[in-house]
Design a protein around this nucleic acid. Sequence first.
DNA 1: GTTTTTCCGGGGGCATTCCCCACTTGCCGA
DNA 2: TCGGCAAGTGGGGAATGCCCCCGGAAAAAC
Lengths: 188, 188
Amino acid sequence: MATTKRPMRADAQRNRDAILTAARETFQVEGVLTSLDGIALRAGVGNATLYRNFPTRDDLLAAVMQTSIADALTEADELARTLGPREALAEWLKHLTWQLRIWHDLPYCLAAAHHDDASPMKPAADPLPARTGVLLAAAKASGDATADITADEVYELVLALSWAVDRFQDDEPAARRRVAMGTAGIFA
Amino acid sequence: MATTKRPMRADAQRNRDAILTAARETFQVEGVLTSLDGIALRAGVGNATLYRNFPTRDDLLAAVMQTSIADALTEADELARTLGPREALAEWLKHLTWQLRIWHDLPYCLAAAHHDDASPMKPAADPLPARTGVLLAAAKASGDATADITADEVYELVLALSWAVDRFQDDEPAARRRVAMGTAGIFA
DNA sequence: GTTTTTCCGGGGGCATTCCCCACTTGCCGA
DNA sequence: TCGGCAAGTGGGGAATGCCCCCGGAAAAAC
């Protein structure tokens, strides 16, 4: 990490943060396939600054996702703590589907990263399928989920449903309904 | 229709056919978002000829889909004739998902067309949800499908699953398994 | 065979995006 | 306070894709 070698120059840190917030805002409006130069413009920095900090789109995406994913994981903890295995899994799937929808083409990128170990997004995104596996295992143990399905299959199903939720512009109730229908096969 | 007014010049018909076959081949390899100029090049015609025949990408897509959709519908007839309502619907969903996967971003385009009445693809693609509705109604009537789901929801679910099948590069058994899992909620 | 009509075609303009370069800025430590 | 050097800047090249223009050629009509 660069931060361990030297405490990073103040303006450099400022610019990096500005890029991250601009990217987060732009992604929500235009999707994750938006122009990178546009993000730099919005952040008020030169485009070269953006490319130096984040050589590829996936690097930027991974950095922006960090905090969102951390939030999602605490939500998962909360669900696991307050609900039974079946409801916790069901709620988590709905929650995850709804969150992934926010950056419109995110499922597309996550799908690409999921089977590409070299992707810069892999380390950032990996906790999502992992945590899904934990909740799934608990539901299996209590007999609430069928044994013959893997965590990857469930995660991929969520990505597909999230794609649909975005593409058909569901509101939240519609999305919950769509997820309930699509994931019914998971539950025993 | 243009063909009713005048029998179309021979070379024009030749070029149009060449464009359609080139488009079909290119779509399978590079997906439906490929370069249109590339299709013209492959067809051995100038790009202007392509744009004259098909002003937009959707026009071309609609024309190329015509025959494929006709094939799919005869398959649906066959299924309805030889299987019970439940199996006919289940097989149709698997078949449809697998077919849509062939042109990689086709679900993306169909999703856009599905809620846009002005889309040139609408007339060509509409039989798909319509036929799905027929098979669903039969399954509902025999008590094999839950009553509280609409044909549109089922169709959209198939589009999402087809997206996943393409994106995760399923072979046919894996795709059938994925569809079976994702559509389990439809069946009573 | 000639005229008329229709259609072809490839070059090029325009827009978009990614990314690199030479030059400039301004922070940090002595 | 001040100089060195890390970091920033933004114009522009390169690649790509869409689409239009207009001279020319081929097919149809006579």
